[in-house]
Simulated assay, not measured.
Amino acid sequence: MKMTSLKLKKILQERLSDARYHTSYNRDKDTFRIEWKESKQGMTITLPNVVAKYNERGDEAIEELVDHVTEALRIMNETQQLAGMEKNIYPVIRATSFPDKTKANKELVNKEHTAETRIFYALDLGKSYRLIDKALLEEEGWTEERIHEIASFNLRSLDCDYNKDTVAGNDFYFIAKQDGYDASRILNEAFLEEMKANIKGEMAVAVPHQDVFIIADIQNKTGYDILAQMNMKFFAEGRIPITSLPLIYEDRKLEPVFILAKNKPENS
């Protein structure tokens, strides 16, 4: 059966049928919205995007969407708290362009990282997570320093096993655990220093999207070009893109670089 937006709308109405939900279809924008009747909180789905995924992956794409929507709506309707959930708090890396407020206009707790990246904080809820906002901190009397310390401690408990690939004499290490915090490993300074001690050439890292962290041991002139191409490909394919620019790691500092012609890096 050829999928269309109208057919998809009907499928979603059936699959997400619940007396507590209100659904609506915007014909002009070709979007489908589902929200809690009482709070009006919900989400809007751009139907052509899902149709495209269906054409690639079939029913799996719809199953994935329904799971995602159901989980998101559940979280929206629950009251979360931080006390007693300390072990479920982690830092997440996002692009500097990432919104610092929720759709409900609540300011998210965040911290500077590099010229390309910022640190936000997530309360892990199992299948999904909630970014922590300042209102939640105030409700529980927590400081931003406390949330950062707890998240950093929990991050260090995540394993940093990697896969290694050698291309044209340069070594590339990939962490892709699919736990939501792959890119967050860039904040594990002890791990970065451990890798630096074993690097033969120059050390560069990349966080093209949330679900991968790349460390590069650049040993010859083509290394930077390979890293740039690799990073751009990951960036284009990522579910939550972060930055297409690699970062040089030197003296415990991260500096974004543009990869120019002749394989020469230049600080951004």
Rank of each mutant, 00 (worst) to 15 (best):
A168C: 05
A216W: 07
T243A: 04
G141A: 05
F234V: 00
L245N: 12
F235C: 05
L158V: 02
F120H: 12
I215C: 14
R118F: 03
W36C: 05
N55Q: 15
L16R: 06
I93C: 00
D179V: 02
K9I: 10
I215Y: 11
K134D: 13
T102H: 12
K37V: 11
R130Y: 14
M195I: 14
E144V: 13
F98P: 06
I119W: 06
I214D: 07
S24K: 11
V109W: 05
E64P: 09
V66C: 09
L6T: 13
I34S: 11
V207R: 00
A95N: 15
H113E: 07
L47Y: 11
N231P: 01
D182R: 00
F213S: 06
I215T: 14
A261K: 13
R185G: 04
K264C: 07
A83E: 15
L65M: 08
D124E: 15
A72R: 14
V207P: 00
K164V: 05
G141L: 05
L227H: 02
R15H: 08
I132H: 07
G126C: 06
D67N: 15
Y173T: 01
I175V: 15
V109H: 05
G126Q: 05
R156V: 03
E64I: 05
G84T: 01
N198R: 12
V50R: 03
I240D: 10
D100Q: 09
K111V: 00
I226D: 13
I226N: 11
Q229Y: 10
I214P: 02
E266Q: 11
I45P: 10
T243F: 05
R33W: 08
M230D: 04
M85G: 01
K221S: 14
F174V: 00
F234H: 12
K2Q: 13
Y54C: 08
F153C: 04
L6R: 10
S268R: 00
Y129M: 08
P91C: 04
K87D: 15
N77E: 11
T70L: 12
H22I: 14
Q41W: 13
Q13W: 03
I34P: 13
M3V: 13
P246Y: 08
K164W: 01
A104R: 07
P256G: 00
D211M: 03
D100E: 12
L73M: 14
N154I: 02
W142P: 06
E116L: 01
S17G: 05
E144S: 13
V212S: 03
P91R: 01
D251G: 01
M232D: 13
A122D: 14
K10I: 12
W142F: 15
L247Q: 08
G141H: 11
A104W: 01
L155M: 08
L192H: 06
L12Q: 01
A183G: 02
D171A: 13
K253T: 02
T143G: 09
K29T: 11
G223R: 02
A95Q: 02
V92H: 09
V69W: 10
